[in-house]
Design a protein around this nucleic acid. Structure first.
Lengths: 226, 226
DNA sequence: GTGAACTTTGACCAGACGGTTAACTCGCCG
DNA sequence: CGGCGAGTTAACCGTCTGGTCAAAGTTCAC
């Protein structure tokens, strides 16, 4: 019996150069596949071909399809929280929100496949990340909701629902990754530049939309044309 | 040869009651499957089971998997344009935008599966709706972009990028359908009620964010803390 | 340079998958 | 109530899919 123990299991340090390289290739190819076709729709054959290796070889590094997806998710979810974590109660409210918008939009620009991977997982009912959603994500959001409530109480931003504010930031920014194809077609653009315009628009919209009335100013209950 | 011609082909009027019912059942089940797992990930077996019939029977009504998806898409894309089509150049700018927000949010509430179906199609590269995106959608958006530009020129709303305004409305509203699972978990809610809060928040955000400065007012170049 | 650990592969498997066929049953119009 | 077309199904087909296995090839520390 000369078969080596498949390696990923427990080692702290990546053992060999080849392993390092191949796992990278696999994860990159898998990211492409899963983000386009979802977990069920992506196939090991396609992932193996994209990684430039045979299917049994791929399965030497990851024993099951699930394991590849899990590895991808783990590294994704880590980074997913970061931008929101960085939202600081101490900073200036509007500036903090603007910076959060920028960080999220940068991620959509630089890592669109990860965004789509996440979206496709959630849209399929999030069966593989339930724990994460119920745990770390929910907790972190609740925490930042409190920060926003403080800003509201201090008159730093207008009185809005903090949950929906966060959702609005998530959705508007991730949209540029998840619906990339549609946006390019509708706008007729090719490169990256439209995302800079998006940044300007979104910062503008949110800052104007959230800024409190001037100190002595009217609370201006919006013209109520129902 | 006693096999009847599969019926869908060309008839103007649905022929039989049974056909009507079964096609409905199939499309409903297929909507569920495609919206969760995408085109590749959904299987005829699952769709047939969901529709309560055998696979050959299902294939009696729709010859190929693609045909089911196409039928679903056709009816979806029809309705998809409606809310934007209703955006009228003649109406009051802010009210029109608010109404558009409401219509989109109503669709997200009432037809979340359709929204996810569309999202999953776009995320997989939109191979089956390219024509639609390049054609009717692009044209309609261009048209409404002009409407918005007019409003800006007339000082009815602030100077913002019309394309990104439309994208922001799309993304914030569809988010409540596509990311429904995540939202429910993070907010810890069950029913429908949070969407009413979302409506309030979004109308508030967009109206405040778009309303022009008071006639004699400052143009207020946003505090530029870079 | 050698041997043990690491890597790769061809052949294979059982079940799922999209789809076909032929024959059977049912609904309904006259 | 007979018959014809509509509706249904069991059996089947070739291919794809996730995954296994044993054997062969490659690396690299000593």
């Amino acid at each position: 019996m000369s078969v080596a123990e498949p390696p990923r299991a427990a080692r702290t340090k990546r053992r060999t150069r080849i392993q390092q390289e191949n796992e990278e290739k696999i994860l990159d190819s898998a990211l492409e596949a899963f983000s386009q076709h979802g977990f069920k729709g992506a196939t090991l054959d396609a992932i193996a071909e994209g990684a430039g290796m045979s299917k049994p070889n791929l399965l030497y590094y990851f024993r099951r399809k699930e394991d590849i997806h899990a590895a991808l998710m783990e590294s994704l979810l880590e980074d997913w929280l970061e931008p929101l974590e960085a939202l600081s109660a101490e900073g200036d409210a509007l500036r903090e929100i603007r910076d959060y918008l920028r960080r999220k939009l940068d991620m959509a620009r630089e890592r669109p496949r990860e965004s789509r991977l996440f979206a496709s997982e959630v849209m399929s009912g999030a069966p593989r990340i339930e724990d994460y959603l119920h745990g770390r994500l929910k907790t972190l959001v609740a925490e930042k909701v409190e920060v926003i409530r403080t800003w509201i109480a201090d008159g730093k931003i207008r009185r809005v629902d903090p949950y929906h504010l966060i959702f609005a930031i998530w959705s508007t920014t991730q949209h540029y990754a998840d619906f990339d194809v549609q946006i390019r077609i509708v706008m007729g653009v090719e490169g990256d530049g439209h995302i800079d315009d998006a940044a300007r628009f979104l910062e503008d919209l949110f800052l104007k939309g959230l800024a409190p009335g001037r100190p002595g100013g009217e609370e201006d209950p919006q013209a109520d044309f129902t």
